[in-house]
């Protein structure tokens, strides 16, 4: 189960452990179930518990971005470690997905 906090049209979801091709399918399924409520317009992924991510994670994040974009929403990420941040930026995700720098930002 992914930890999540709902606040109005905003949903903060915490990812834990490793996000590779093996884990991607279950993470994708769970995220999709969490964002199935169409009134959710802002998805914020909290990476503070994520210790590893490879390009399979890029696919998962961009896939959820497409779902939110369809309903006029956005996806943002918070608490990326240096390694995940490198993958995030090399994939060009930074152009469409906002990077927040603290939970205070997330609540703004």
């Amino acid at each position: 189960m992914l930890r999540s906090i709902r606040d109005g049209d905003k949903l903060l979801v915490g990812l834990d452990g490793e996000l590779d091709h093996f884990c991607a399918q279950s993470v994708r399924r769970e995220l999709d179930s969490q964002i199935s409520d169409p009134t959710i317009r802002q998805l914020i992924l909290d990476f503070s518990g994520l210790t590893f991510m490879d390009s399979s994670g890029i696919g998962v994040i961009l896939g959820r971005y497409r779902i939110l974009r369809e309903r006029g929403g956005t996806v943002a990420v918070i608490h990326m470690n240096e390694h995940i941040s490198r993958i995030f930026h090399m994939s060009g995700m930074g152009k469409v997905i906002r990077q927040l720098d603290s939970k205070q930002e997330a609540r703004r």
């Binding site: 390009s55 890029i58 696919g59 961009l62």
Partner: peptide, 14 residues
């Protein structure tokens, strides 16, 4: 369709 990002080799190269 499986949401593969197509970034695998680019990550290895980087």
């Amino acid at each position: 369709e499986q949401e593969r990002s197509g970034m695998g080799f680019a990550v290895m190269q980087t």
